[in-house]
Write a protein that binds this DNA or RNA. Structure first.
Lengths: 245, 245
DNA sequence: ATACTATTGTGTGTTTTTTACACATTGAAA
DNA sequence: TTTCAATGTGTAAAAAACACACAATAGTAT
């Protein structure tokens, strides 16, 4: 990354972006039975959440969409605003190279979480970072500022969302097995569920379609593959699901 | 209201407050079987939600607390941040007297809703308004900007909050009857509930205490008075209620 | 005073949902 | 071919939600 761009960003960012306002994204993925988050690493610095700023004539939602696009390469991401963090001390210890810059002022950050299909993501560092990769949710390293707090709040919101959104639709690949879906729920809820009752409940919602295929390759009996029935899914969502976990 | 204060507010507000950021509060109350919101009327203008701005070194939560205090005279209010509104066109039609002022810029607004005990509130207009009063939730007049949208979103959030918070505790006076509590739930949920099953369910939560007194005055059989048992209430809240409406 | 009315207090049986648990099946590995 | 560990399916018990009936009573009308 050349330093001209970076210098421009420090010096003229306030001509492009609203002051004092930032957007932070908690990007969730699911892979190999693990819930994961996408993190960035500052040049020679700590890890942090992917974030950005709001252009003067851009909606905050669009900012989040843009940031997501830049970090993952994906469009059409499932995105939820979950909380705004407004403590003046939330960036305690902030020290960026250019101390005069707009970027060293206090920021109020609007938090979004995103659900993405792990395999489709192509992680891209941003202008301030040189590394971008997935971390298991229970193994994330120390994060900058209050980003751990933001992540925890995102997870809590995701947990609540489980009550009226079949989040598997956004986190899993098109075809998946019942045990995979269950593991996803167990990770988010941080609890164990009975295999048979879980299956009954999921099928009772009536938005899953069982395929003829089975998932082979793993040891032991091969489980069936399922996929979301888009029509039934849309219909159910419109009527408002009541999952109740 | 003298115009010197107002002029100062227009001219020097940006020295006190963060630019582009506002806070709007949806204040809910309950009286005579009606859910109500507290609204302000602009001088010779439309009605709007009570709002304000964030001081440079103040947390956003504290701004909301301060605004609430100024409008209602109350401390220790139950307050929930529920959404941040960031559309650049959200203040369509904005035209305030001083067109050069910081206040005519785009604002991103952080929404809070508050639950208050109706009888304890002493409504106070703010610097921009000359009237402040309660409106029945289903009779609110046309509101400025996107304030109707904000109110609706607050109501939706309150409805969700019903699932893990006994909101009656914050909206009702210390002593209340079971029918009153039921009417509160029915208004928020916009649905009718069976009297007997409702009572069973509320009592099953185990945070209500039935008093010896009855509420007299109304026609017909006098209902018992109840009150929240603070110890059991705190205990239950810590464990996380699962009400499920 | 008395009867009336609308509302409260309480209980019971039915239906539905949730929970707990057992056994046969099967793909891969030993 | 046997073994292992995980999957597929069903059933009974417990709990929660739902529907509904009848007695009691504070004011109101007569």
């Amino acid at each position: 990354m050349d330093s001209k761009l970076l210098k421009d960003f420090y010096n003229r960012g306030d001509q492009i972006f609203l002051p004092h306002i930032s957007v932070d994204c908690v990007i969730f993925g699911f892979h190999e039975d693990q819930l994961k988050v996408l993190l960035l690493k500052w040049r020679d610095g700590p890890w942090c959440l992917p974030g950005g700023f709001v252009k003067h004539d851009e909606s905050v939602d669009d900012s989040a969409i843009r940031i997501l696009q830049e970090r993952t390469g994906l469009d059409n991401i499932y995105l939820q605003q979950f909380h705004t963090f407004g403590d003046p001390k939330r960036e305690k210890g902030k020290k960026l190279p250019d101390t005069k810059s707009w970027i060293n002022k206090r920021f109020i950050s609007i938090g979004y979480y995103a659900l993405v299909e792990f395999s489709k993501v192509n992680p891209q560092p941003d202008i301030l970072s040189n590394e971008c990769r997935w971390w298991d949710i229970d193994k994330v390293p120390a994060l900058i500022y209050d980003h751990k707090l933001i992540m925890d709040k995102a997870l809590e919101s995701l947990r609540l969302d489980l009550n009226d959104h079949p989040v598997g639709y956004n986190l899993l690949p098109e075809k998946f097995t019942m045990p995979e879906l269950q593991r996803l729920y167990e990770t988010i809820l941080d609890d164990e569920l009975d295999r048979r009752n879980f299956q009954k409940r999921m099928l009772a919602i009536g938005i899953l379609e069982r395929l003829k295929e089975r998932k082979t390759g793993g040891a032991h009996k091969a489980p069936f593959l399922y996929r979301f029935d888009k029509k039934k899914y849309a219909r159910a969502l419109k009527q408002g699901l009541k999952l109740g976990w």
